[in-house]
Nucleic acid binder design. Structure first.
Length: 294
DNA sequence: CGTTCAACCTGGGCGC
DNA sequence: TGCGCCCAGGTTGAAC
């Protein structure tokens, strides 16, 4: 679910919590697999408790929350925290959410916020994940580089230049839709926005990257910026299952703009041709056979 | 290089 | 009503 626009919306939604101290960490027993939370809950909680949320940064579809340790009670804790700047890396995957309002059902992790709390500041930060495929990982600077560094993620889709996009993907033999999903090449675009971007660019998703002309790459680049910016403006896409919510537990509004995603068999809003669904790399691809050409 | 499959999970929708 | 199946905004590693 969450792609770049949804994760950016999440980042902005929790921004009011930046500067606040995490006074308590509550992790319901038996609800978190090792894959989902690292280190294991007792260590995770003891490391996070007492720290101040200093910043929330987005890397593609991931969020990294920078934590600073404060007034550690024991010298042992002070040593440990001073030696390792800590980042809480949140990877929502399909259904993970960060919320400052009550989640739809029991949350997975609840961080109670304290310290200076002027009116309007959230009292809690919640992680909720219906399918439980997301991850929360507490890491040091090396760990952050391993999870979000340039070996792992390509340039952010909102920041990459047209020239760099062409350099990174232009020579590939893969279908352009598949290449756009490659987070090592380009970070942030997922299945939904890849479909919408290619529709607006008029490009058949099956076209091999190496067959696209430079003008078409530049068009694709410009359209990618437009689509992502509009989706952020409308706080992301909430699909029919309503899983994705903003940090305030409200639906996004970009779904009203979808031209092809999830619209198989319905008429293209530009030309009336039925939208087609195919499968590429085991994922659904939606496109208009008339508007999108090779 | 590239593709393909399975795995991690829950839950909604559909046909029978 | 219920069962079995397919589907889903993502990522990863193995096999070919």
């Amino acid at each position: 679910m969450p792609e770049l626009p949804e994760v950016e919306t999440m980042r902005r939604g929790i921004a009011p919590a930046v500067g606040m101290r995490i006074d308590r960490v509550e992790i319901p027993r038996g609800r978190l697999r090792p894959l989902l939370i690292e280190p294991a809950p007792p260590q995770f909680a003891s490391h996070v408790r007492g720290s101040v949320l200093e910043a929330a940064e987005r890397f593609g579809k991931r969020l990294a929350l920078r934590l600073r340790a404060t007034d550690a009670k024991s010298s042992r804790a002070r040593l440990a925290t001073a030696a390792t700047p800590r980042w809480l890396v949140v990877e929502p995957r399909m259904t993970g959410l960060l919320l400052v309002a009550e989640p739809p059902t029991q949350e997975h992790v609840r961080l109670r916020l304290g310290g200076e709390s002027p009116a309007g500041r959230p009292a809690e930060l919640l992680f909720w994940d219906r399918r439980g495929l997301g991850t929360l990982r507490l890491v040091d600077a090396d760990g952050l580089a391993r999870l979000c560094g340039e070996d792992r993620l390509g340039p952010d889709a909102l920041e990459i230049s047209a020239a760099e996009l062409i350099t990174r993907l232009g020579g590939s033999a893969r279908a352009v839709k598949v290449a756009l999903l490659d987070q090592k090449a380009l970070a942030g675009v997922g299945n939904l926005y890849a479909a919408e971007i290619l529709f607006r660019a008029g490009i058949d998703p099956r076209t091999r990257c190496s067959r696209l002309s430079r003008p078409r790459w530049r068009r694709l680049h410009a359209v990618m910026q437009e689509v992502l910016a509009e989706a952020i403006e409308l706080e992301g896409s909430t699909l029919s299952d309503a899983t994705y919510r903003t940090a305030l537990n409200e639906p996004g509004r970009y779904q009203a703009r979808h031209q092809v995603y999830g619209r198989a068999g319905q008429p293209c809003q530009v030309c009336g041709t039925d939208v087609t669904r195919i499968v590429q790399a085991q994922r659904s691809t939606f496109f208009c056979r008339a508007c999108q050409v090779r």
